[in-house]
């Protein structure tokens, strides 16, 4: 399957057409990635492999760069608007990165079929839990002791509601444990962990969805940088393939990051849920694929 063009016209495509088409799709991927705190990988990888018959390693190389592009493109606006909680990001990043290192060390001991199944079920469960918690109530959250000691609480100005929102954080230990597991899973399956970071911050720590998204957005860039450097040094980052992806995503993410503050939280939550259910379905399908 992989490595063979499946899109009818891709055999006749010129480099110019590829660059323009990929650039356009990447702008859209950047807007969604920045809004939801996910890398553009779930859009970029299928486009490159299934659409253009590009080798999976080169697609993943481009996808890793696209995650960084999403993260850095959106970051300037999120830091300025105080949507990113830098303390939460750094604390959880310790757990994710150690998880990723553990995952890299134990890779090969597990049946990926089971991992895909577990991943799919976890995502499906997160989707159900996030659906039940449709309305955000950040006011009845009480600080846990660790969160208070680490001063994880924060505040931002919500442009959609026109007022300052302050929030507290709970279940810090649980979130750290979940992020460690998320790091292991994403290293074993080569999947970005943004899709697990947002539900963890939303369900366990009970951060506002905009803060979860912006904070996840920061973290995915840091995590992807280490892997991207490795892929780059192996020659899997093809400049011709990656250029339109990176440029499009940077532009899209910059646009998306300006939207996030102004959009209603309930709408962002709804879009995230759709993506969550879709990825969950894809993972379970992969577990049972022949």
């Amino acid at each position: 399957m992989v490595g063979r063009p499946t899109l009818g016209r891709s055999g006749l495509m010129t480099p110019l057409e590829f660059t323009l088409l990929t650039f356009g799709v990447s702008i859209l991927a950047g807007v969604f990635g920045a809004l939801l705190g996910l890398g553009g990988g779930i859009i970029v990888v299928p486009l490159l492999t299934l659409g253009f018959g590009i080798d999976i390693r080169h697609a993943v190389g481009a996808s890793l760069v696209s995650i960084i592009a999403t993260s850095s493109g959106a970051a300037a606006a999120y830091v300025r608007d105080r949507l990113t909680n830098l303390r939460v990001a750094m604390l959880l990043e310790i757990a994710t990165t150690s998880g990723a290192i553990t995952g890299a060390l134990i890779a090969g001991f597990f049946n990926t079929r089971w991992l895909y199944l577990i991943f799919g079920i976890v995502l499906a469960w997160s989707a159900i839990a996030m659906m039940q918690k449709r309305r955000e109530r950040v006011t009845d959250v009480t600080h846990d002791r660790l969160a208070a000691r680490l001063r994880l609480s924060g505040g931002y100005f919500d442009a959609a509601r026109g007022k300052e929102i302050t929030y507290k954080v709970e279940h810090t230990r649980l979130a750290l444990a979940l992020m460690y597991l998320a790091g292991i899973l994403s290293a074993l399956l080569g999947i970005g962990s943004g899709i697990l970071k947002v539900p963890t911050m939303d369900l366990a720590m009970r951060l506002p969805i905009k803060v979860s998204s912006a904070t996840s957005n920061f973290m995915i860039g840091v995590t992807a940088a280490a892997s991207a450097a490795y892929f780059f040094s192996r020659g899997y980052v093809n400049p011709f393939i990656t250029a339109p992806v990176a440029a499009g995503i940077v532009i899209g993410a910059t646009l998306g990051s300006r939207l996030l503050g102004r959009m209603k939280s309930s709408r962002i939550r709804a879009i995230f849920l759709v993506v969550l259910i879709w990825v969950s379905f894809e993972m379970i399908r992969k577990a049972f694929a022949p």
Binding site: S72, V222, V237, T242
Partner: peptide, 13 residues
């Protein structure tokens, strides 16, 4: 250009 991009998150940390 891609190397500069990859370096930004590390620089940010």
């Amino acid at each position: 250009g891609l190397l500069v991009l990859i370096a930004t998150p590390v620089l940010r940390v």
